[in-house]
Each structure stands twice: as C-alpha cells, then as structure tokens.
Amino acid sequence: MSDTHRPSTVTLPTLSALPAPWHSENGTPAPRRLIAADDTLRAEAAYRLVCEGTALLWRGDYPGALRLLHAMRRRAERRRPRSAPDCPAEAFRQHRRERARLARVLGLLLVPLDADHRVRLHRAPDVREACLAAYGPLLDNRIVSLRELLGVIGAHQWRIRGVEVPALGAHIHPHYGVFSPVRGEYVDLVARTPLPQAALDHPTAYDLGTGTGVLAALLARRGLRKVLATDTSVRALACARDNAHRLGLTERIETAGSGLYPPGRDRVALVVCNPPWLPGRPGSALDEAVYDRDGRMLHGFLDGLADRLLPGGEGWLILSDLAEHLGLRSRADLLDAVSGAGLRVTGRLDTAPRHPRATTPGGADPLLRAARAAEVTSLWRLAPA
C-alpha cells in the first residue's frame, strides 16, 4: 500500500451497524460511522476518512491491515502544530493533544475477533493466548481496534519474556494494562537506600500502588518479612501476585485492593510509594501509571503516612521532578504538601534517568527535550514532624 497513491475513487459499502459487539479495554466508545474496507482503499483516502471520524472495518487480509495502519501512522506523524509552544507546560499539553489525536484516528481501523479469540482475517497470526490473557473469556464475537490488538500482542510478549531488573537479580513479568518497570533508576534507589532502624527491628512494610509488584519483591528480598502491596487495579494485583509466586515470595508478600492504604490502622516500619509523576488526567489504564489526576495519589500517600508509621519508621516517596521542569508543579508545592501532612524530610537520594527520552536528543519539541534532559528522580525519606 504505497504512500504515493492518490485518494481512491472506489466506492466502499457503508455499514449501518457493527456486525458484532464493540470491545475496547480503555473505554473508547463504539464508532458512529463505519464503512467496510479492503485493499482497494488507498492510504490517503483511509487517513482522510478516519480523521473525519469514520471507522474502517477491515475485510482484506491481515498483512494488508498492518500496511494500511503503518501508512496512516506516517501521515498522522507528519502533521505539525499550527504554532510553536512558548513554554514547557504548553509544549507538554500540545504533545499530549497530539498523542490523543494519534490514538483516536489510528484506533478507527477495526478487525473482527471470534469468541475463541481468533482474528477472522486471512493470514492472521494466532493471537488466542494473548487475547485470553488480556480480555478473559469472550461469550461472543467482537469487533476490536487493530491498534489495541497490537498492544495486546506486544504486552503478551513482555509477559512471556519478562523485564530484567538488575537490582532484583531477576525478571518481572508485567501483565496487559500494568506499567512495565522499564525505568530501572527508581528501583535502584529503593535498593540503595538504607533501611530505617524500625524496619530492622520490625521488618514490615506497605508498597502503595504496587503495579507489577517489583518494589514489594525488592523489599522482601532486602529482608522485610511482611510486605502488604496495595493497588486499585485488579490487573495490577493479579500481576503482583504472579510475580511474587514466580520469585518464591508468596509467604512474604500479600496483596490488597480497593484503596491506597490497606483497611485497618496497622502501623508498619516502612511505607513506599512511587506515584504517577505528572499531574494530569490519564487517558488509558497505562496512563494511570504516568498521570496523577489532581495529585490524588501523591497527596493521599502524604496525608495518610504519619498515622501508619511505627516509631522510627519512614515513608519513601519516589518521584521524578519532570513536572517541575514542565511547569506543572513546583518544588515549593511539593514541600508544602509534605509539611502540610505533618511530615519532615530526613534525607534524599537522587539519580539521573536512563530512559531513551532523557538521553536521545531528537524526536520531541526542544522545550520538552530540555525538560527531559534536566530530569532527576529522587527518593525522599519522610518521617513525622
């Protein structure tokens, strides 16, 4: 499917409704306008249609759908904002708008999925295992976004192979919809920070917002006899339990859901929290590991900490300062939140991020590149004032 083709003049059938129920893991509503599409539809015409909000239900072969999706992506990524941002915060907002637009238009190329998790297209790969892991059992045929399906397939490969965590000396296996611990610097901070005396005397801890359970596993490996890992995501709790089982730590790690802090008023020697680092509204389940709406998780951790610590215990807040460089939160705001919660800072360890966005010079707005290059990730040691 060539990028140089002119828009197709082939008339494709308009569909009055989806031929099967719509399925979207991130809550995207079913499309309102729909046409059947195949290899007679040229990339330029397809891109114009999805930009107008028309979904394309693919009826060609699977490789043709992939070629069309890649061709539409190239066109979408060539689009440039009308004006250059004048500050890092606006550059960041513009970046988020473009990412949301890209997800919206590329998400309108649809494929049929049978109840047994087979893609009903010629030359389609066997995706049954990946879809069962992400979607669970299906009662009937579904229509899904090809872009989402590719995410399901990719996530399953992460789950099978795992992510090496040098500080843990093992692999962590993320599940679909659970943020992968690819940014190892925050794990290294937890591995390097000396445990408070209370944790040596009473080796108990909470890991709030555990995700894959990587920090809970690290704390258990460091000698904490009981780590209670919490998360509001059912997927994350299942993932954390799976990783604890793989690592032989099920006797030391327990999971609990429904809230940030576990129910009850039990005090522990150490409370660890790695909240989303950027204020903002998440647009998907994975975004919830990056964007903290109104700083709810950050403030929830701080406001509840003093009442959950044993004498001599500490809270460890792992947080990037990228929000400060983007103008989304100031250092004064953070310190005011700490003192307002009746806490004091007893120490801090810093590290420079190693992820590609921080070290690769190209690909983003200059203001975003500068903010990412200046980013520092810190572990703040907190105690009651």
Rank of each mutant, 00 (worst) to 15 (best):
residue 278 L to C: 08
residue 280 G to M: 05
residue 280 G to S: 06
residue 280 G to W: 07
residue 281 R to H: 11
residue 283 G to A: 15
residue 283 G to M: 11
residue 284 S to A: 05
residue 285 A to Q: 12
residue 285 A to R: 15
residue 288 E to P: 09
residue 288 E to K: 12
residue 290 V to L: 14
residue 291 Y to M: 09
residue 291 Y to E: 07
residue 294 D to E: 12
residue 294 D to M: 08
residue 294 D to T: 09
residue 295 G to M: 06
residue 295 G to I: 06
residue 296 R to H: 14
residue 296 R to Y: 13
residue 297 M to T: 12
residue 300 G to Q: 02
residue 302 L to T: 02
residue 304 G to W: 00
residue 305 L to T: 04
residue 309 L to F: 01
residue 311 P to A: 05
residue 311 P to W: 04
residue 312 G to L: 00
residue 312 G to I: 05
residue 313 G to W: 04
residue 314 E to P: 04
residue 314 E to I: 08
residue 314 E to L: 10
residue 315 G to K: 01
residue 317 L to W: 03
residue 317 L to D: 02
residue 320 S to M: 04
residue 320 S to I: 00
residue 321 D to M: 04
residue 322 L to D: 02
residue 322 L to H: 07
residue 323 A to T: 07
residue 324 E to K: 11
residue 324 E to F: 15
residue 326 L to V: 04
residue 326 L to K: 03
residue 327 G to H: 09
residue 329 R to M: 13
residue 331 R to H: 13
residue 332 A to F: 12
residue 334 L to Y: 07
residue 335 L to Q: 15
residue 335 L to T: 15
residue 337 A to F: 07
residue 337 A to Y: 06
residue 338 V to Y: 08
residue 339 S to N: 13
residue 339 S to C: 14
residue 342 G to Y: 02
residue 343 L to V: 02
residue 343 L to P: 03
residue 344 R to S: 11
residue 344 R to E: 09
residue 344 R to W: 12
residue 345 V to D: 07
residue 346 T to K: 12
residue 347 G to E: 02
residue 348 R to A: 14
residue 348 R to Y: 12
residue 348 R to W: 12
residue 349 L to D: 14
residue 350 D to H: 11
residue 351 T to Q: 08
residue 351 T to W: 05
residue 351 T to I: 11
residue 352 A to M: 15
residue 353 P to L: 05
residue 354 R to Y: 09
residue 354 R to H: 10
residue 354 R to Q: 14
residue 355 H to C: 14
residue 355 H to M: 15
residue 356 P to V: 07
residue 356 P to Q: 06
residue 357 R to C: 13
residue 358 A to N: 11
residue 360 T to P: 10
residue 362 G to T: 14
residue 369 R to I: 13
residue 369 R to N: 08
residue 371 A to G: 04
residue 371 A to R: 08
